[in-house]
Design a protein around this nucleic acid. Sequence first.
DNA 1: GTTTCATGTAACTTCGTTTATTACAATACC
DNA 2: GGTATTGTAATAAACGAAGTTACATGAAAC
Lengths: 151, 151
Amino acid sequence: MKRDSRLSSVLHALLHMAERGEPLTSEHLAECMGTNPVVVRRTMGLLRNVGLVQSAKGHAGGWSLAADLKAVTLRQLHEALGEPAVFAIGNRNENPDCLVEQSVNAVLDEAFAEAEALLLDRFGAITLADLSAEFSRRHAAHVKERKRNAS
Amino acid sequence: MKRDSRLSSVLHALLHMAERGEPLTSEHLAECMGTNPVVVRRTMGLLRNVGLVQSAKGHAGGWSLAADLKAVTLRQLHEALGEPAVFAIGNRNENPDCLVEQSVNAVLDEAFAEAEALLLDRFGAITLADLSAEFSRRHAAHVKERKRNAS
DNA sequence: GTTTCATGTAACTTCGTTTATTACAATACC
DNA sequence: GGTATTGTAATAAACGAAGTTACATGAAAC
């Protein structure tokens, strides 16, 4: 089953944008994410629709953040991407006549709903600032490690 | 995103098998599930591999339950099906060099792991007997409703 | 023992979805 | 004006899941 990795992609892109501070072109982002500039524009366009980023054409144009890192949650991003299906597993038929299947669906749906609620709740509690902090932590550890190896 | 509905399918099939008590052919099951006999054999074969059902060739052959309804959990079935990916969302690259992406992955993975643990936990607590009971409840309600409408 | 019914399984095809690509219009800056 | 960049439609490619065909195997009926 092929997974939707757009959330992961945009997070990657947004953090790079936050690091840099100047607009990054679709081409640059595409290269750094191993994809295509048009795909980047399509995806980032969804974030622009809800005001999370802005884009500029022409010289020195590109994409830049339009919101405070502390104010953007993963849940917002998930919603901006159109709330794609969370699960790769599901019912065969959502509205079956068969009572057996209806029973199966009801029980499965409940379990899925709980797990989805938990996930979205977690997403709602994680901000871009949290991710940025996680990066800083890893970056510091990385630098320290490199230093140790060099000496 | 296309979902893997095999868990839903096999539950449907297993409950029908439990209702009937006699072996059901792949063809019968396929018809009642809106699919193909070969697909049924492929899928049920996975359950046979772990001893949950048995199959018989020839006249009066077919598929029948080989375990107690109370002893079979959804989690076992999920495992028997090869533990297919639960989520339709995931990381773009599981082992990136980029520290930014590593940070993103780490945070996302943690959230997914929690939600998956919850789901599998729920699956572990639901048996075929529970589903059968749910069906009986719905069946009784259905019969009652039909009676009421007829009078 | 031959016919019929059913599973077992490999190989192939079809289908739907997602992603990538091409192409070109629109716009901003120098 | 020329160049860099986004915006977007249309198309192609890639992929995986499901469906299908074909045939071998085995068990029961007659």
